[in-house]
Design a protein around this nucleic acid. Structure first.
Lengths: 201, 201
DNA sequence: CAATTTAATGAACACCGTGTTCATTTTCTT
DNA sequence: AAGAAAATGAACACGGTGTTCATTAAATTG
């Protein structure tokens, strides 16, 4: 890849990262990006067909980095008994990958605005902390606030169940779904999926 | 609220739901919506300032419905011992709420495109099923495919940890994050957060 | 029912960002 | 040093945006 191309691509990315601190992705124009990156607007179109194509390209770049970590860590012969435990080192490497590309990652997460889930999380978190599980607020796990993990898992999993039912054009079995969600919460995804032998933790 | 306003609002929503089956939200114009809803384009602007304001409004509508289920189920005095178990009936009602508004919900989830997470999920799912945990593919839980739940929890939680570290301007403690993620998977969020007394399931 | 308020209509308007073009200049590669 | 490839700057038509205003239609109120 031509050195010039690398430079402009990098300049475009950096410009986006900067601009996103000022305004929403949807309000950022190609003109904005070009100005900030100090390139000609026409040059942008030599690299991408539009700003969504650009985003797509950067998303793939990041996703491939993460994928590579996984691929480079594929064991010779998978050990079904040990299951997840055997992948501890891989997970650590993925978090390192996140850390090394944190600016890019943050940019991508901000761009792909899942505004509905964000709204829902806020509302649920508020009710949960104030009225349902007040103890959530005080817990410190050294990681995101407990209440956040709580609503993240709740919304992600429950909405996925709903969407899955919608896609497969079957009415959602609410009792079954509720039990499933409970199991995920109380026993963990691994056990819920039957991936652990009894007694294994 | 004026009956006419209700009608046009409903017509706009339905038009959006229909249109989204044909093209991406970002390619839908106000003109498209007005044409499909059989209203004047100017009328649209009497209701919303732009199409993102419209989306915001519908998102709030749905989020408030879900919130209301929770609020209406707030127990007189929360029982910290029973914790989540005591909320089974509430969860069922939330799933019923999803079901009753499935079209709206599907629309909202499609609009708020979290394209990066989607890409990542696909890649991870592929590697996981093909090389790491082949048993995932065969499991049927009556719910979304196991592999999906697997990557949903993985990406949601791990990326949240990364983003939390970014927001709080502290470097991500990768070992700690990995252990945390493991616990969520193997023991469940409830136990990970210390919300369960020993022996309680 | 009549009077009044309020919403919807249709047409027109300027504005802005888009994506493309082309000749020219700059900067890599070999 | 010569040729290839990328970046530049200016110009262009196009389409969607958001606003306006006078007019018509339909609701609410007394």
């Amino acid at each position: 890849m031509d050195r010039r191309q690398q430079k402009t691509r990098a300049a475009i990315l950096q410009a986006c990262i900067d601009l996103l601190k000022e305004k929403d992705f949807r309000h950022i124009t190609v003109g904005d990006i070009a100005r900030r990156a100090n390139i000609n607007r026409g040059t942008f179109y030599l690299h991408f067909t539009d700003k969504y194509d650009m985003l797509d390209s950067f998303e793939n770049e990041m996703a491939e980095k993460i994928e590579r970590v996984l691929v480079d860590n594929i064991p010779k012969e998978p050990d079904p008994r040990l299951f997840i435990e055997s992948r501890y080192h891989t997970i650590v490497q993925i978090f390192e990958c996140y850390q090394e590309n944190k600016e890019l990652l943050h940019f991508l997460l901000k761009c792909s605005y899942s505004s509905f889930q964000a709204k829902l999380r806020n509302k649920l978190k508020r009710v949960a902390v104030e009225h349902l599980f007040p103890q959530l607020e005080k817990l410190k796990v050294g990681m995101p606030l407990s209440a956040d993990l709580f609503v993240i898992v709740f919304t992600s999993v429950s909405l996925s169940l709903a969407e899955y039912a919608y896609q497969s054009q079957t009415p959602l079995n609410v009792e079954q779904a509720a039990k499933f969600l409970f199991n995920v919460f109380l026993q963990g995804p691994a056990k819920t999926l039957g991936l652990l032998q009894d007694g294994q933790t």
